[in-house]
Simulated scan of single mutants.
Amino acid sequence: MSTRWTSPSTDSICCVFWLLHLPQLFSTCVAFSLVADMGIWRGAIGNWSMSFWCICFAMTFIISIVELCYLYSNFPFFWHNICVTYACYAALICLSTSIIYSITYVQFVPYGPFRDRAIAATAFSCIASVLYVIEVTVMWDLYELKEIFFYKHTLRALLKVLETFVAGVIFAFLSNTSLYLHQPALEWCVAVYSICFILAAVVLLLDLAEWDYIPFRPFSIFQLVLTLLSILLYVSALVFWLLYQFNEEFGGLPQRFMDVSCIDGLSYDMCTWDQQLAVAILTAINLLVYMADTVYWALQVSVQTRG
């Protein structure tokens, strides 16, 4: 059964969302520009933050053009599913970027124009996250989202969004290739993150597509198998990452002070040991999310089987 919604006129809807998209575009663009203007002072974390703000700006711009030109009817996927899911991602991205950028970089920058720009960029990133949250709320009010995938199965969608989002943050830290290159066990960890991200993204897209001809029970079992596979892969990644990064017998550094980059007072970037620890924590978090996903899907399959 296709999803239906009730809404005001199309023109009024476009007007409402443009009132949100314009400040979203402005906030992400200003945050990106302020950090870009810092030159070599922006550091690796600044480049990482810029990439996320740039992605949010580009996606918001594309969505705005599609809505302005009324092109959404040409998409096979349910357009409002895509919009609300993206808005949730964008809110998480801007919020996490604000937190990580301020904790790992801004507080270490000396007082002056560069610190002021970094603080201003963080503020605009926070504003953008609030605007994206408002967009989700507005969509809830304008449409009957109780029948839409993201809201009909809130827990299922939230778990998939978290799985892909946490993997995306892990990839940001792995942009420092020195963390894993030339070490097969650590390269395996990167492969695990990539494989699980792709699997979760495919499942999320299939749900967003609202392909009603897919039988629920076989599709649920299929997702349950994929989630179990992801758990096994993440367990291996967590074990290898901890052993090869923090165990001296495998060439790791168990203590932070043993990393030269962490005791260099002239460095304003997140040191290598901290990045390794961040990846380990995020890996453990995503493993817990996948475990919760497995429990949820096991219950769903069990209920459908008894029915």
Rank of each mutant, 00 (worst) to 15 (best):
Y101S: 15
S102E: 09
S102D: 10
S102M: 03
V106F: 08
V106E: 04
V106N: 05
V106I: 12
V109T: 11
P110Y: 02
Y111P: 00
Y111G: 00
G112T: 06
P113I: 12
F114Q: 11
F114A: 11
F114I: 07
R115F: 07
R115Y: 08
D116T: 12
D116C: 10
A118F: 07
I119A: 08
I119P: 00
I119E: 07
A120S: 09
A120P: 00
A121V: 13
A121C: 13
T122K: 02
A123E: 04
A123V: 09
S125Q: 13
S125M: 10
S125D: 15
C126M: 12
I127H: 02
I127F: 07
A128G: 15
V130C: 15
L131N: 15
L131E: 15
L131F: 15
Y132E: 08
Y132D: 06
V133K: 08
I134D: 13
I134Y: 15
E135W: 05
E135Y: 06
V136Y: 03
V136E: 04
V136I: 12
V138N: 11
M139C: 09
W140G: 12
W140I: 10
W140Y: 11
D141W: 06
E144N: 15
E144Y: 04
L145D: 13
L145Q: 13
K146D: 14
K146T: 13
K146W: 11
E147L: 14
I148T: 14
F149C: 05
F150G: 00
Y151Q: 07
Y151T: 08
K152W: 07
K152Q: 13
K152S: 14
K152A: 12
T154N: 04
L155G: 02
L155D: 08
R156L: 06
R156W: 04
R156M: 06
L158G: 09
L158A: 09
L159C: 13
L162D: 03
T164I: 12
F165D: 01
F165T: 02
V166Y: 01
G168C: 08
G168I: 02
G168R: 01
V169T: 04
V169C: 03
I170A: 07
I170F: 04
I170W: 03
I170D: 06
F171N: 11
A172N: 00
F173S: 06
S175N: 00
S175K: 01
N176S: 03
T177C: 05
T177M: 05
S178K: 01
S178A: 10
S178E: 06
L179A: 02
Y180I: 08
Y180P: 11
L181G: 00
L181R: 13
P184K: 10
P184G: 07
A185F: 08
L186E: 05
L186V: 02
L186R: 09
L186H: 06
E187L: 04
E187N: 07
E187K: 00
E187I: 02
W188I: 01
C189R: 05
V190W: 05
V190H: 07
V190A: 08
Y193M: 10
